[in-house]
Structures are given as structure tokens and as C-alpha cells.
Simulated scan of single mutants.
Amino acid sequence: MPKAFSQQERERIEARLIGVGKRLINKAGIRFLVVDDVAREAGISKGSFYSFHPSREEFILAVFESWEKEHRGALIREVTEGQGSFRERLERFFIGAFRILEKEPGLATLGVKDIQMIMERLPPERIEAHKAADDRALAEAFGGRAGMERFPPTLLSALQGLAPALFAIALHREDFPPESYQATVKLLSEALAARIAADVEGFAATAAPAGKGETS
């Protein structure tokens, strides 16, 4: 029977598990990640591992989410606190989002089949929780609930599918002709930023008194 841990112990062990997972995935990729190795290096039994994560796939997703969280703060600050116009900040945000996969060796080795394998083995509620977290992060980048009120409804609907769309493009980066991926990322980032900024500014102009519709 797995050992019972206090809340503080669980937090420390979870941090160790995620750290071990990152190191092993960076070293060999997700296909060679073995639960026995993770548990042993984290100093717990295999049975105890499953009291933290119900499956290997859920653990892999938790590791990916930790990586995502590490980079997300900087991306959000780029929009909320960065220099330049709203459009310029958005452009840097999207370029940064595309490049998250390039910054971590473990993420850089991901392929479409790897993602499909993980998603097929996760319960629907876990996938929905992950998507909801992405939506919250996107909302935070655009100023939280109050900030999102500046967005026209049609744009809000489109933004909900933006994170997985960007991720899918980044996953297929090896399918691009040589030297074209970065140029494509820049072009897409510019186009997305320009369209979103224009829609937000246009919506603000129709909703606010004359002279008060400018987006900061």
C-alpha cells in the first residue's frame, strides 16, 4: 500500500517528480520515459507515484504544463507591461508563444503522434481542464475579465481556439521548407496582432464616446 504523505510532503515530492520528469524527457524524449525511473529518482515507490499521477500520460501532461507555466508569465508581462503599442506587444506575445517549443529540448522533440498518443489516453475531463487553463492564461494576457470586455464577441470565440492552433503549427515546424518556419512565424504573428488590435480598437470606438476609444 502506498505511503500516506502530509500535504507538505506531497508538495515537495510533486516538485521532485516534475523536476525528474523534465530532466528525463529532456534527455531522451517522452517515448522513453518510464514510471519506474521517475519514481526511483524522486525517492518514492512506483505505487506512491500513482497516488500523485494516475497515469504516465497524465504525468507527462503535468510536466508539459509546468514548462508552459514557466514561460507563460514572461509572455503575459510582454502584453500587459511591455513597451510599444498594443499591436506591437501582441506581436511579441505570439512570436514568444511559438518559440516556447524551441526553448525546452523535451518539448522540441515532440511530434504530432506523441501528442495524439497522450491525448488518446487521458480522460476527457483532464483534457478539458488543460484547455480551460489555456483559456484563462490567454484571458490574463489580455487583461483578465475586464480586459476581455474590450473584445468583440466574434473575436473572443476565435481566441478560444488560438492556443491549440499555434501549438499545432509549432509541432509541424519540421514540415516547413528550410529557413521558412521563422519567417512564417513572424508573418502569422504580425497578422494576428494587427487583426486583434484593429478589432479591439474598432469595438472600443463603437462602444465608447468619441475620443475615448483608443486602446492602450
Rank of each mutant, 00 (worst) to 15 (best):
K3P: 01
S6Q: 01
Q7A: 13
E9T: 06
E11S: 13
E14L: 03
A15P: 05
R16H: 05
K22R: 14
L24A: 03
I30R: 12
L33C: 03
D37E: 15
E41L: 14
E41N: 08
S45V: 02
K46N: 10
K46A: 07
S48C: 08
H53R: 04
L61C: 04
S66V: 00
W67R: 15
E68R: 13
E70D: 11
R72H: 10
R72P: 00
I76Y: 08
R77Q: 13
E78P: 00
V79F: 03
F86Q: 02
E91Y: 00
G96N: 05
A97M: 12
F98P: 01
L101K: 08
R121D: 06
R121K: 15
P123F: 03
H130C: 06
A132L: 10
A133S: 10
D134K: 14
R136C: 02
R136V: 13
L138A: 07
F142N: 01
F142K: 05
R145F: 12
G147I: 00
L156M: 11
A158G: 08
I169V: 15
D175C: 10
P177F: 09
P178S: 10
Q182T: 14
L188V: 14
A191V: 11
A198K: 04
V200K: 00
E201V: 00
F203R: 06
F203H: 15
A205V: 02
A205P: 03
A207L: 13
A207K: 15
K212L: 13
K212T: 08
G213D: 07
E214A: 13
E214N: 09
E214Q: 10
T215K: 07
